[in-house]
Amino acid sequence: MSILQVENIKKSFDNVEVLKDISFTLNKGEVLSIIGSSGSGKTTLLRCLNFLEFAENGRIIVDDELLVDFALHDKQNDASLRQKRLNFGLVFQSFNLFPQYSILKNLTLAVELLDGVKKKDKEKIKEINQRALDLLKRVGLEDKVDAYPCQLSGGQQQRVAIARALMLSPKILCFDEPTSALDPELTGEVLRVIRELRDGNTTMIIVTHEMNFAKNVSDKVIFMADGIIEEEGTPTELFDNPKSERLKEFLSSSLKD
């Protein structure tokens, strides 16, 4: 049963069509990897799902409920848009933790603001903090609660960012090249966390350059080129029996190094 249906997404920047009619579906608990060379539109697609970009056309349906129909041009009011984007979580390439807050506060800030938690409300705060601690434990960073982002390595920061995204219990967790800003020896710890999330049946969309990881972790792979879905299928289909010339070319060049 599909948790996400994306239909006919189109997006251009300054008359350059970056996404030309993108449609796909995703089932609950599945992991979708999006691969493709730079400029193929992978990141833009992810940003459209998170409403960081507004597509010109297309529909996004989550849990059989129409979230947005971009073609209707109804300027969504801020409040309803914020509510809708909470269906998705997004982990950025550059982590984007809040530098002035402790790791704990990085996790709890958004929830406290969303729930309008008052300082007096000790019970509620304790509950939120406990949830943050549990998540930090899950990403193996419970000893860093009181540290600040600048004291952590890139890999640790990215794990915190994952925990932060999970605080709001999104239905679909998106990753935008989560390991691209990391030193090679630090990518492993982040990929391990993502793998554990998959084992916990988290629905995820991962834009990645890590071909081996995409092959091992995903239920479904999409190969994008020039703003279209050139090929999609199971990892075995795409990596072992690529049909299109472009995918063959892409795979041979990205597996070379």
């Binding site: 997004l90 800030l109 969303l114």
Partner: peptide, 9 residues
């Protein structure tokens, strides 16, 4: 953007 995707105003 981090604030936005976390649902902040």
């Amino acid at each position: 953007e981090a604030g936005q995707v976390l649902g902040m105003t």
